[in-house]
Amino acid sequence: MKRTHLPLNGLRVLDAAARHLSFTRAADELAVTPAAVGQQIRALEDTLGTVLFRRTTRGLELTPEAEAGLGPLRDGFLQFEEAVRAMQAGQSSKSLTIAAPRDVTEKWLMPRLAAIAAADTDLRFVLLSADESVDFAQANLDLAVRWGDGPGAEEGEAIEADGMVTVSGLGGADTPIAWPGEPDAAAPVRVADAGLAVDAAAAGLGRATVPELIARADLASGRVVAVGDAQPSGQGYWLVAPLPQWRQKKVRALVEALAR
């Protein structure tokens, strides 16, 4: 018999009926009718090609064939239960693996994770650097931060931010600082990401236009100042994960803590 064709429903009914030696009490346990129990047993007998129960003057009795299979069957159900517990264990785990661009991790994510961890000292974080889409299964990821106009193929929630902002250091130069999100071949300073652009502006090398989320902490500390008002953007940072990870309690709790 192929494993994929195991009559699991019928075997579950057999286990209940064998424990009670009563189709009626088995039906009560399984929340079905006695007739449905009888139908499942008959179908299982047809599938196995053997009789499982006999009716006698003393009531329902197991056949020797049914008796022979009950021990391994119940061991199998215990294995199923252990498998389910093992698969659910990840949801109660306090360890989360998160992928984000380097500058998002440094400027926004790590300070927020520190505050979250201070409130729950059992939490453990694994942080990976990822500027582009990552394979959640291969990297064993729980959550990722991505830049875009939506979550793409995954489930997601937008991180609130005020679009793009231009920043400069106190008394800094009035020349542009380029980075991949704001390319400028003529800029005298070019850096690898928005976080480094903020750092370059803070060092007095010029002005950088970056996502407000990246500049937020440096603006709040006075390390850089805003040049004009923040401008709306059709893109932003998103917390994303495939549906199975997104539904996990630990991931939902982290998303709620990060997004507020």
Rank of each mutant, 00 (worst) to 15 (best):
K2Y: 05
R3F: 04
T4L: 15
H5L: 13
H5I: 11
P7T: 01
P7A: 06
P7S: 09
R12F: 07
A17K: 07
A18D: 09
S22T: 02
F23A: 06
D28S: 10
L30H: 02
V32Q: 07
V32Y: 05
A35T: 10
G38F: 06
Q39A: 14
Q39W: 13
I41Y: 12
I41A: 13
R42E: 11
A43K: 14
D46F: 08
T47S: 11
T47N: 08
T50N: 05
T50P: 03
L52A: 14
L52W: 10
R54G: 12
A66G: 08
G69Q: 06
L70V: 10
L70E: 09
G71W: 14
L73C: 12
L73E: 06
D75H: 07
F77H: 09
Q79H: 15
F80R: 03
A83M: 10
V84K: 01
V84R: 06
R85P: 02
Q88A: 01
A89N: 03
G90K: 01
I98K: 12
A100Q: 08
V104R: 13
T105P: 01
E106I: 10
E106M: 13
M110D: 09
M110Y: 10
P111F: 08
R112D: 13
L113I: 12
A117F: 03
D120P: 04
T121E: 13
D122F: 04
R124T: 01
V126S: 11
L127C: 11
A130Q: 10
D131V: 14
D131Y: 07
E132I: 09
A137M: 01
N140W: 02
D142S: 08
L143G: 04
V145S: 10
W147D: 10
E154W: 09
E155M: 03
E157R: 15
E157H: 12
A161F: 07
D162P: 04
M164C: 01
M164E: 03
M164D: 08
V167K: 00
L170Y: 00
A173F: 09
A173N: 08
A173E: 14
A173D: 07
T175H: 14
P180K: 09
E182Q: 15
D184M: 07
V189E: 07
V189C: 14
R190V: 02
A192V: 07
D193G: 05
D193K: 08
A194G: 06
G195S: 06
G195C: 09
V198E: 07
A200K: 00
A201L: 12
A203N: 14
G206E: 08
A208Q: 07
A208F: 04
L213P: 01
L213R: 03
D218Q: 05
L219T: 02
A220T: 00
S221K: 01
R223H: 03
V224A: 01
D229V: 04
D229Q: 14
P232Y: 15
Y237T: 02
W238C: 03
W238T: 02
V240F: 13
P242R: 13
L243N: 00
R247P: 00
R247E: 12
K250R: 01
A253N: 04
L254N: 01
A259D: 06
R260Q: 12
